[in-house]
Computed example of a mutant assay.
Amino acid sequence: MESALEEIEFLALSENRVEVLRLLADDRHTRGELAAATGASQATLGRILGDFEDRSWIRREDGEYAATATGRLVAEGFTDLLEILETEGELRDVVRYLPTHAMDVDLRRLADATVTTPSQTRPNAPVQRVLDLLGDADEIRVFSHAFNEQSIAQIRDRVVDGGAAFRGVFSRSAVDALADDAALRERFGSLLAADDAAVRVREEGIPLAATVADGTVHLLLRDENGVLRASVDTDDPAVRSWAQDTFDHYWRTATPLDAAEFSD
């Protein structure tokens, strides 16, 4: 009897095998339909279907093929493995910077995320990505351990001039650093004075930098030295739910920031 690893290798060595099993796990198909869907020759299909029948992964009824219960199980498991490896490939270069200790999210939910990294020609690409998301957002939520000057300017413009609503929770260290910068202090003060803007300060700190622009969650990723390495953003429902729950928690455990502190 072949080992599980040998069975995985058997499937992985042929895209046609993977596709035929997936098709038959979804629905019944004739041999002609399988040929049209995969582009495989009749000889290749014959070998694939014979191998699958030998493993009891499929059965033939009235000229059609269908996956058995174990065939569907194998198809589902192999599809999950492919999705995991595809996600790993997308995140491989940035996973070391992801604040996974603070993210109660299955990394598979980031399979379709947009990963933005700096380059020689676009060193500010991760920040520009969040600026693009903020550009037409109507509802903005931020929880972060740091301020970004460009993001503050974009949020201020959206709230003061564009009618957006803003809520932010920041660590005490971020607020103190902002207060020491005259230009940022003035810009942030004008944001705080807006009718639909509110900011709270969390003394316990916040271990990540997240922006929720309408339905998109954006994370700025920095290394242990604070150097910007990448950003990740997604509109996945599970990630949005996590971000909203996390924001709500930080909001409840923070205190309002008095706009008068930034009015001078």
Rank of each mutant, 00 (worst) to 15 (best):
E204A: 14
L5H: 06
E76R: 15
V232C: 04
S14I: 13
E149K: 14
R59A: 07
D80S: 12
L184G: 09
P123K: 10
D223Q: 00
L131F: 06
W57I: 02
R96I: 14
L13Q: 08
A210F: 00
L24F: 08
R31H: 03
P126R: 09
R185G: 03
A137C: 12
Y250Q: 03
A146Y: 07
L85C: 08
T44R: 05
A146L: 11
V94C: 02
D264F: 03
W251S: 01
L257A: 09
P207L: 05
R59M: 05
G226V: 02
A137S: 15
L23K: 13
P256M: 10
D233L: 04
V239C: 08
I155A: 02
E76F: 08
V130P: 03
L45G: 09
I155T: 11
P118W: 10
A75S: 12
T246S: 13
V175G: 07
I140V: 15
A75F: 11
D157F: 08
S14H: 13
A254F: 14
V130Y: 03
D195N: 06
V18A: 08
P237Q: 06
V239T: 13
L133R: 14
A67L: 05
W251D: 04
F52V: 00
L228W: 05
D138H: 08
P123S: 05
Y65H: 11
A174L: 00
G189S: 04
A259H: 09
D195A: 13
A174N: 00
L73R: 14
A213E: 00
V169Q: 04
V142Y: 04
D161P: 00
A125V: 06
A102T: 06
D223C: 01
A69M: 08
A67V: 06
G46Q: 11
L178Q: 06
G135Q: 12
R167N: 04
F147I: 12
Q150R: 15
A243L: 01
A209E: 07
V227H: 08
A36S: 12
